[in-house]
Design a binder for these strands. Sequence first.
RNA 1: GGGCGGUUAGCUCAGCGGGAGAGCACCUGCCUUACAAGCAGGGGGUCACUGGUUCAAAUCCAGUACUGCCCACCA
Length: 877
Amino acid sequence: MDKSFDPRAVEPRWRRAWEELGLYRADPASGRPPFSMVIPPPNITGRLHVGHGLNNTLQDVLARWKRMGGHDVLWVPGSDHASIATHVMLERQLEKEGTTRQALGREVFLERAWAWKEKYGGEIVEQLRRLGVSCDWSRERFTMDPGLSRAVREVFVRLYEEGLIYRDRYMINWCPRCRTAVSDLEVVHKEFPGTLWTLRYDLEGGGAVRVATTRPETFLGDAAVAVHPDDERHRGLAGRTAILPILGRRIPVVADDFVDPSFGTGAVKVTPAHDPNDFLAGRRLGLAPIVIMDDAGRMTAEAGPCAGLDRFECRRLLVERLRAEGVIEEEKPHTISAGRCQRCDTIVEPMISLQWFVAMEPLARPALEAVESGRIVFIPDSWRKTYFEWMRNIRDWCISRQLWWGHRIPAWSCAGCGRMLVLREDPSSCPECGSDRLEQDPDVLDTWFSSGLWAFSTLGWPDRTPELGRYYPTSVLVTGYDIIFFWVARMIMMGLKFMGDVPFRAVFYNGLVRDAQGEKISKMKGNVIDLFDLMDTYGTDAVRFTYAAMSSPGADVPLSPGRLEGSRAFANKIWNAARFARPHLEGPRAATMRRENLSVADRWILSRGSRTAREIHEALSAYRFDEAAAAIYRFTWHDVCDWYLELSKPALAAGGREAEAARAVLSHTLDRVLRLLHPFMPFLTEELWQGLVRGAEDPVSLSLAAYPQDEPRWDDPEAERMMDRMMETVVAARNLRAASGIAGGTRLPRLELVTADDQVRRDLSALAPSIAGSTRTAEVVFVASFAPGIDRARTVTSLGEIGLPLEGVMDRPAERERLQREIERVTKELSVHQAKLSNDRFVQRARPEAVEKVRSAHRELSERLSRLQATLAQIAT
RNA sequence: GGGCGGUUAGCUCAGCGGGAGAGCACCUGCCUUACAAGCAGGGGGUCACUGGUUCAAAUCCAGUACUGCCCACCA
């Protein structure tokens, strides 16, 4: 075995083996309780990033933990076609080639999209595999698979038939670059400094009205000026006619209470075709919208002299001209908020357009109830409020996109009878009039429409498959909180609607991955951390462990090199612990452990192991990945490596029954560490377990072995107490040694322990020789007399008795100073406890355990204090 | 404009009513036959601020400051 762990030599081998053996196929016939999850399908548009790393690591921890815990685990992997995101990527490619999708045509473009999917969709799945995730690869799905497409169509048709999908000419968000409608959620609002212009419109018959706007060019589309009916300043204005500058168009002044009299001049220009508010006002007031911009953001003929100009160019020129003509009466800085396309960052335009919508309110009601009632649990539950808020104010969902890559809308218009047909199967002729002049709606569906069905479409719906019966609802969804509306909410609505049950019983929201400074990772900032660089540098296990360790509920996950290095060191530590254990594990399996043959150290580590299993079980049950990781870390490094392995050395060397017992405990403990750690670090643990621990009757893989439970028969508070005392003593000794300047390598002779307490004598005496045999811990022997219960006569000054003259060994002034500091500290702490115990209310009202804790702490502290003082007195002489 | 979260050791973060913690960094001493990606020891914090509740507050409540995020059709 190499001196250090080399992940690259280990990972590919096990990755391959796990998959070739098909270990992670769900087995409905197994008779074990099911545990199921669907992966949040990564988009085919890019590489797996650090966020995917976190999300999939946490899912895999759960999957492996549950599998080892005896569940039939189904974890469905797959990828998402990502309609608009893929368009953006492909169009960037085309742009480099000097062409456009429009020039290419739909068919050729779709061929390229499929080619992209084959290439990058395959890559992203490969990248998932590198993480070591235990998905059921035999059930990999893609949102545009035939089966899933059938589900999409079924859902569309049924919602249409129920009137929950409708078509309307309505105001939507339009991206002039993507040239498609996008939903409200796909618009990202950003604030930036802008200008508020005040324009003067002359009134017919004299006078003028002033309106404030942040988008002066839209005056070209004004259909009215509105004032509040109760606004004294504008009394008598309603009913008159304003004349638009430049165009000279006459528009009415109307009164409506949507106007906020306190803003600007109290009069507002109404542009029904280019502002959501004005659109509604226009409908109410019967104003015809005037469209001044086309689908590419260029001004139309309605824009008069500006026709053909780009929208921003138009604004620039218009402002100049209006200034010159004195129409602009005021310009002042104003923070404005513009919506941008989530995918391409282009400023979106509110536009009136004929689109397909889903009526959300009927779907939202049960989805709201499911979370309110606790049928779906959110972790952390603070997300409930966010979810409720959105659900209660839900607006209809614009689902049609003027794109090509995606699920095409199953609607045909018949040129024969003029009917709109929405059908499950592609028609060859009109079922109503028999005409074959049918034309399918060119649009595709919002990519989230199909992902909303993911929890059941991946299990074979609309067929009543056995998988649906067994694995739906899924056990838990692990996802980022950034898609709570896009995905989680819609899955809940669709699941309830079409399956009649929730899609998952719980949602765990993992944090966002941030950089070491806690900054959001973005290409703009240039702080992108590449997941594969991380895995190459630190090893996949270390990266996974870091994710888990940093994943505390409700918090984002900063990826700091320090943590990653710590995890890598941890992997290496285990590797070397195994290297140490190896020679002792060879040969026939160690005998069963019998308490009466075990040393205190043995009993202690078994007890700690039991406790650790319990802690991990509790932590993972509550999705506390961080606490579980901390528990296994503490146990492995600090209990097993720092203490147990050192203490076992002499016993192992001793041979005979003593060594036999130590071997048994060592083997048991290493096995336990590897099992407990496996969900977090699957590669390293599998490698070591296969090489060192696995017996003939064990499963082929550690990932199929049983997860350790607590072992009440090894719970041993007495041994833990004794070891605590022992460790305290050793630390005191090491301090002394350091202060005395005794070199680390110096071997110190043994000291016979003298104690009045038989039990203590037996156990510590049994321990002492073993300690003495180890150079690292030898020093314990000469001050073991510090330990409570041991004859106080033998204090540090008895060094002389064991042949080491104090003089020349110990730096007295330094030790004296250290002791004094320690005495001060203990005295201070003691006084705190003293005060508590003399506080009647504390003694009466606090929980009895709390009081007892303080009492015993007080007792120990005062004993310690007197020992320290005695030592000081002796040194002083 | 609403809503949510954060402010604890130099850095990144746990702890959320009764003894201030982890990883990394730092200081001292060690290549000790598993591991220098290591071992042993150590230093370092009025737990943002103000007030309140309580026998007891980093922890609960109110407010302030700073900060991050989400939602929202104020021109």
